[in-house]
Write a protein that binds this DNA or RNA. Structure first.
Lengths: 345, 345
DNA sequence: TATGTTTGTTCAAACGATTGAATAGATTGT
DNA sequence: ACAATCTATTCAATCGTTTGAACAAACATA
């Protein structure tokens, strides 16, 4: 069973008594090779179970047809769906996609970048880990002339193509919705403001409050890592306030879930006593009771657009100077956790 | 900013007025190179921001230090955790991991294998798509002499190393637990029996019923794709039976969730009227109400062991003939959906 | 002093595929 | 019939790194 030695173009050449270069050209349909030879080569290639050696051709051509993707974690609806779309789009163009996950860790992210560059990928599509504040490793990608596209979590100081939603507007829309539900004291469990998207969500939240003449109170605003545990801890703190909020907007569904657990453990009616909205449209938000209102980040469009931005970058080499920022519309999904009117039905 | 031309060992050699081969040897700490030269080379390498070209060294060495992983979907607790552990273990050994997902599709799985082989990976660690019944593409991996390790979803006919749990015993334990809860008519929402693990779960279920003198009734046994929708559909059918079951054991948490939704929509008490157990310990099983009893497949151990099996294969080349089947103990997690005694507290 | 050993480096041939230039043979034009 | 053109192929260099063999110089041994 073991064909230990892999067949190369040399083997095909020998079998047909022609040179390896003729074989190479035949396989890539070079116009100057006769149809007869092409047919013969392809036939022998098949019978010998020939598989081109990617390493060799990539080395010679200076192009690996590999694209690296870095996500904070694959175990998330949003990211796995983005990745799926990137793969779908790029495979049509003959690229293979290498997926790596940083697990939200800065050092893992650095390692991932290092190994992707080492693998000689033709480009990198990435979303930053929560931990990341220094950007040297990303600058390193740029300095090597490797195209870099960021999505969802990116920073402005890093001057690269970006695809994501308008976090400011999304956040604004959430607060507007909660106001329309009659909420007056809206708390925010946010991500750390050193990350652009979380900063924008905080600003959107604050400016919405302002424009609706609702109070901005620091005791209602918390920054954290947005885990379930963080959600629980902060919700607990909010409940212990002399004047607890009547709505909570969490910048992640996981934090929202933690908050929801605490509310249920304290027998607080959702959404009537306290309304709740999350962010990202994780699968579980629609599965649990009450279902959690959230923001759909349009992962499919983001994935496809990220892939297409990369393709433009590699195909239009003269398009270098211009920078691309693509903002995709998000969608507020109103579910039971914040829909008071539904209770009247 | 753009360093268009990447630095190679030739550049380093020129800078120090030595030959490229001396540089290569210095960088890999060859014993015959003087410490003085090594230091100098490494210093210049750093200042020139030298990054070795993986393609060239892999081509020359005939080893890419890349390992491919194929999972049905990354968006799952079990698989993403396995992948994480594989990565953790292999990166210690200097390997980089390429993750691909088949999305449960046979054709995507074929493409993944093709592109991994094309990338010249040193090995492949895979779990089969649900759709897959023909195994030619896996045989192709073997015939190329590339080590192949299967985990969780593998077939016996494919004679390769395997890591997984004992599905038969796990299934048996679930039924035993349900019997201990006083259940007498236990239904099974199973996967298609052409897949080994689902077949074993069905056999475990049947033989458990037999050994506890419970009836085996075909109307209580259904094979499907184990999606939420399948769970809903089959649960509906089970409820419409003249004699509905008093327990349902689903071979996946998603199917269990679908069943749970139907039960709640019909105001059927869980676990008292109908007890429910799933499989895989997906995140949401502990988050929803009632929490779903399930089987923990020990993804971390499976991941680590799969990685280590691969390492053994590549390091002990003379270990060829022996075949490795590693069975990891699973763990039954009893939660509210099947714990009647808890209600008495 | 001749001989053997150690040390540090260079040489040259790979790895497998690609590609522009060179070449030989067939075909066309005048 | 001789040059010009076209066709199908071979030649040879190249991508960047690795590695065993070769080599020269320095050193130790007898």
């Amino acid at each position: 069973m073991e064909n230990k030695k892999k067949t190369t173009i040399k083997d095909i050449a020998k079998a047909l008594n022609i040179t390896p270069s003729a074989v190479s050209k035949a396989l890539s349909d070079h116009p100057r090779i006769s149809d007869k030879t092409k047919k013969a080569v392809k036939k022998v290639a098949k019978t010998l179970n020939y598989q081109p050696n990617h390493l060799a051709s990539a080395l010679r051509k200076g192009k690996s047809n590999l694209v690296g993707v870095i996500v904070p974690r694959a175990n998330s609806n949003f990211f796995s769906s983005v990745v799926e779309k990137i793969e779908e789009r790029l495979s049509k163009e003959g690229y293979n996609v290498i997926i790596t996950q940083s697990n939200e860790s800065f050092s893992k992210e650095c390692k991932n970048i290092e190994s992707l560059l080492y693998t000689q990928v033709d480009g990198i599509i990435a979303s930053m880990a929560n931990e990341t504040t220094v950007l040297d490793h990303y600058e390193n990608i740029k300095s090597k002339g490797v195209p870099l596209i960021m999505f969802d979590r990116g920073e402005d100081t890093l001057e690269v193509d970006y695809v994501g939603i308008d976090d400011y507007n999304s956040s604004f829309a959430v607060v507007e919705h909660l106001k329309n539900q009659g909420c007056k004291r809206i708390a925010h469990i946010g991500g750390y403001s050193h990350t652009r998207i979380y900063k924008n969500r905080i600003i959107g939240y604050k400016e919405a409050l302002e424009s609706f003449n609702l109070p901005i109170e620091n005791e209602l605003i918390h920054e954290c890592n947005l885990t379930i545990e963080d959600g629980r801890r902060i919700m607990q703190q909010l409940l212990e306030l002399p004047k607890p909020p009547d709505a909570v907007f969490a910048a992640s569904d996981f934090a929202a879930l933690g908050a929801l657990q605490i509310l249920e453990e304290n027998n607080i009616a959702i959404p009537n006593d306290i309304a709740l909205v999350g962010f990202s449209n994780e699968t579980f938000t629609s599965l649990i009771k009450p279902s959690i209102s959230t923001v759909n980040q349009r992962s499919e469009r983001i994935g496809t657009l990220a892939a297409e931005t990369f393709l433009k970058r590699v195909n239009d080499t003269n398009w270098k100077p211009k920078l691309n920022k693509i903002i995709v519309d998000s969608e507020l999904i109103i579910r039971d956790s914040s829909n008071k009117s539904k209770l009247l039905d």
